[in-house]
């Protein structure tokens, strides 16, 4: 087994976490955001494993298993939502999907750009006559 100090493992987990966080803050496409969230979750799980290994107890792994199942459930629902959102709004840009960002203060995460041509190629425009719910705006 490794003879690397456990702190290095934690450091790796920390770096991965921060990278994921940065990804969440930077990217605008919802899919990418979800992806980066997964990175963060994974990093947290790694931290658990490292801690568990340090103490030689199964608790770390147990936590990781819980975390994993939670990530699975979250991804399932999240992706379903993304699909639904896309089918309605034809756009996956988080800025455009938000409240429009009327008074954007510039600076930090990104400028308010109008809806980028992300949803350019429409896979399947289900537009007309959405029966259920309609516009629950």
């Amino acid at each position: 087994m490794a003879s690397v100090p456990f702190e290095y493992g934690l450091a790796v987990a920390g770096v991965l976490f921060v990278l994921g966080l940065t990804g969440v803050l930077v990217r605008r496409n919802l899919l990418f955001i979800l992806l980066c969230v997964e990175i963060m979750l994974n990093a947290a799980g790694l931290a658990f494993i490292v801690a568990g290994a340090r103490w030689g107890q199964p608790d770390g792994q147990v936590m990781f298993i819980f975390l994993l199942s939670m990530a699975a459930a979250e991804v399932a629902v999240g992706l379903a939502l993304i699909l639904l959102l896309y089918s309605r709004r034809k756009d996956l840009d988080s800025d455009a999907l938000g409240m429009g960002g009327a008074t954007t203060p510039g600076g930090s995460p990104g400028t308010a750009r109008p809806a980028s041509p992300v949803g350019a190629a429409r896979a399947r425009p289900p537009a007309v006559g959405v029966p259920q719910g309609g516009t629950r705006r």
Binding site: V18, L19, L21, T22, L25, V26, R27, R28, N29, L31, F32, L34, L35, V75, A76, L79, I82, L83, Y86, L92, G107, S108, P109, G110, T111, S116, V118, A121, R122, A123, R124
Partner: peptide, 30 residues
């Protein structure tokens, strides 16, 4: 794989990120 399926359903997405967008998050991250 779920992600791959979704991308398949939606179609390839390209997310444009300008360099200016990075400054804040990178600082925060650091």
């Amino acid at each position: 794989v779920l992600f791959v399926f979704v991308i398949m359903l939606i179609g390839p997405r390209n997310d444009t990120v300008s360099a200016r967008d990075w400054i804040g998050p990178v600082i925060l991250g650091l």
